[in-house]
Write a protein that binds this DNA or RNA. Sequence first.
DNA 1: CGGTAACCTGGGAT
DNA 2: AATCCCAGGTTAC
Length: 431
Amino acid sequence: MSSVNPSLVSAYGSFGRAAATLTLFVEVDHSPSIHSLNLVQVMKRTRSALSSRISPSSKSPPLPSTPPTPQTLHKTCHPKPTSVSSCYRSRKPKRIVDSLNGFSKSDPVRWVPLNLAQQELCLPLTFPTGQTFRWKKTGPLQYTGVVGSHLISLKHVENGDVCYCLHRTDSEIDGRTALLDFLNARVSLTDVWKEFSASDARFAELACHLGGARVLRQDPLECLIQFLCSSNNNIQRITKMVDYISCLGNYLGTVGGFEFHTFPTMEQLSLISEEELRKAGFGYRAKYIIGTVNSLQAKPDGGEEWLKSLRMLDLQEVIDALCSLPGVGPKVAACIALFSLDQHHAIPVDTHVWQIATKYLLPDLAGSRLTPKLSGRVAEAFVSKYGKYAGWAQTVLFIAELPSQKVLLPPQLRTVEQSKHTVEDCEIEIV
DNA sequence: CGGTAACCTGGGAT
DNA sequence: AATCCCAGGTTAC
């Protein structure tokens, strides 16, 4: 497995790029499952897989610049192209940025190897799969986002290794350090997965197809606000909400048509009102965000320090502390704990994980409904099977359930029941 | 304490 | 066209 896993290229295309997506299938896909489908089937599959998961980034223009004016998310995220460009003009850097790969033509960025092979970090399995809503696809196998105050693109090169470039940074060395920290690079995915595979044959098989699906180490405040937006919501709208909030941060630059900002500080966050968020379409989550920001500001050392200090605590203490914030329940707390607070064995239990658990770990519970108490049982079961990095295993199993990934797996691995509207697409016979 | 309904919104299905 | 249902949930009865 020295080449980039090409089956992943296609999974994250957009509707608008369906034609390009198909080309990629033909040219680079070495897995048998897609080859044998006819065009209509592939289109149907791709469409279905993307229907609820893909971020709207590539099919809608980027958000207007700061400050976010009170308007609905719909208007914010689908402005008329003309008005967008004109409202951008004032803040945009003068140099021309290549919309395809983020290169500035007058000042080409330098791509630097990260010393991470694809088996350690696979970008399409790590960035658009629900851990963060802030990274944008800015090219084939390329994602762009912000770590601290560094605007960074990551991409796979030909042999599958990951390279990065710093579009904007105060210090190249600090940028690299921050990036490696953000990528949890000190954890060897290969080592961790070896353990999982030893105790779970199905994991071992999935691992062959999902290599490099890594858990990030995000900034806790950024992670918290993102997952406050996630409750009872879909990826598309979550992304729009997160974009809206992000506009309160400092503008760093534009890559591939997307504007990037540092994540707003507590101070910047406290400038928004609940009313403003409601007008922007946040719904009942508006009061959660305002309430959480207020609650954090009341902490003696400041909210950001308080959040960071949770990294020192045990999982249950972390969950309890997070659940004291308005809008944070067990599921959101587990996401924050796993994706930003070094709680590698936190298990966010959602309906997907519930399906997996009742099928493979707790068959006795099959058929019953997911309650808070039962979700505790699920978490225990995961930890006792996979150990102290159980959250990392859960992430892989979760990704395997995403419609966009599922259709790319061999049939025998797609065993957990699907929701109604995807099942017909996924059951197309492979000729 | 465990089960239930309401909560905002937008998109797709019926 | 009107309505229902759902989306990685949380809170208040």
